[in-house]
């Protein structure tokens, strides 16, 4: 504080124009934190309901941008599931599907959404491999998937004979792993 011994300080409220209801508060030092600034302005008689217009616009815009990123970065799971249901070949049976959309911290990008999709299934018949490859190709090609899925593949060893008791010889088990585009949330 520059003059701690003083009990009074004169300030001027300067209208910014004839037809404008914006006022410049002259003589009010504003190097203080935002909430303290607002408190000080509201403490002035007659300015109890005043708003700090330009800073308010900037702050509201930042809040709105933060909320909007929740909308723009989310994955439409309903679209993904519906497309998957439609595209699974008749000889393929899905046994387990795991999807995760985790929020993680990246040093460069800040908080990001990291998504993963793993599909475990069974494929029957002598064209089992073709059917699984077809499904993998569709995951890489159709817009319902490619909007969010970056790559889809059957990892080495993830297509094998079904060794569970009573399984037909022609049955295969498989796993398709999908990686998604990373979306920054800040």
């Amino acid at each position: 504080m520059r003059f701690p011994d003083r009990e009074k300080h004169q300030i001027f409220l300067e209208p910014e124009g004839v037809d404008v209801d914006e006022t410049y508060v002259n003589g009010y030092s504003m190097s203080l934190p935002r909430d303290v600034q607002e408190e000080l302005v509201h403490a002035l008689p007659g300015l109890e309901d005043a708003i700090m217009l330009r800073k308010t616009v900037a702050r509201n815009q930042a809040v709105w941008d933060e909320i909007e990123r929740w909308r723009t970065t989310r994955t439409d799971v309903a679209l993904l599931l519906a497309a998957l249901q439609r595209e699974v070949p008749a000889s393929v049976q899905l046994v387990e599907l795991t999807f995760s959309d985790d929020l993680a911290f990246d040093e460069e990008k800040g908080v990001v959404r990291r998504l993963n999709l793993t599909i475990n299934g069974l494929a029957d018949g002598f064209k089992a491999k073709d059917a699984v490859e077809r499904l993998t190709r569709r995951l890489q090609a159709l817009p319902e998937f490619t909007n969010s899925i970056e790559s889809a593949s059957v990892p080495p060893g993830a297509f094998a004979a079904d060794r569970s008791p009573g399984a037909p010889k022609s049955r295969r088990v498989f796993r398709i792993e999908c990686t998604f585009y990373e979306s920054p949330l800040e």
């Binding site: 909308r71 989310r74 994955t75 995760s100």
Partner: peptide
Amino acid sequence: LADNPYVSFSGLSISA
């Protein structure tokens, strides 16, 4: 998702 544009599925597991 149609009801709320900001809500999302953070995890999903389906087992037959």
